[in-house]
Amino acid sequence: MNAVEFILAGMLAAATPMLLAALGEMVTERSGVLNLGIEGMMALGAALGFMVTYSSGSHALGFVVAAAGGAAISMVFAALALGFVANQVVAGLAVGVLASGLSSLLGKPFESQTLIALPKLALPGLAEIPVVGVLFQQDIVVWLTLLLALAIWGVLNHSRLGLIVRAVGENPHAARAVGFSVITIRCAAIAFGGAMAGIAGAYASTVYTPLWADGMIAGRGWIALALVVFGTWQTGRVVFGAFLFGALSLADLTAQAVGASVPSQLLACIPYGVTILMLAVISSNRKRLRLNSIASLGQPFEG
């Protein structure tokens, strides 16, 4: 397998944890709430998903419990940000610290245990194409994530529910004036984001690298937050950004596979360095950023 095939085969799976978390955060931010606790919520989902899958042998159950756990911890954030009208930046950081602490506490007895990952499903026909074919042999969660991205795009842009969420994010006072409960909608959007972060973590710990190690999320939650900005809150662009970062995060393994002698620490820095670079490039276009960004993002709503 050459380097191109290696990256094509792995980039979708590598992108999936970041993509799941970023899609959830995108919906939360569309409703006007900035949740900076994603990294910790992913860690909690990873711990819960691993524990349940390890004990029950069922990946599906692991994902369900991780989603529930992510949604539950995100309600602590919702209580602070919506109920107590706290600063969203600090509230997100606080819940993130709590969630990652809980993940290490709960996961402690499972340290360095391993699981069996999910089998790969090949798309008939497409998977036989030379070179590019490896792209179409992925586990079921990768395919479901892509379908979910499509569904989120459809709901956000072409449904009444999506319109309400966007209205709450763009102009909460107007949304309230026409009879929608800003707090309820935002609470639901936060819960969705939390559940997605939980699923993202579970994918990382039970499928992508099926083992539990403390700190295994390793910044992927923060990259997911950055992806929402790169994608300027548009589903398609977020998906594209996640694929790019999925490929970049394989640089480390690819170099080893082709036998290049570059310090592994330098290669491990590539996704972080590119995140900084992309943030600078996308954010410097202030006009475009303002056009797409959410008007009430991060601002508390006191009705």
Binding site: L80, V90, A91, A94, V97, G101, L105
Partner: peptide
């Protein structure tokens, strides 16, 4: 486990913000 301290720190900030 050491993580117990992290949990306590997180709780402290959550309750303080509230």
């Amino acid at each position: 486990p050491v993580a117990g301290v992290a949990v306590f720190q997180g709780l402290l900030l959550v309750f303080y913000l509230a």
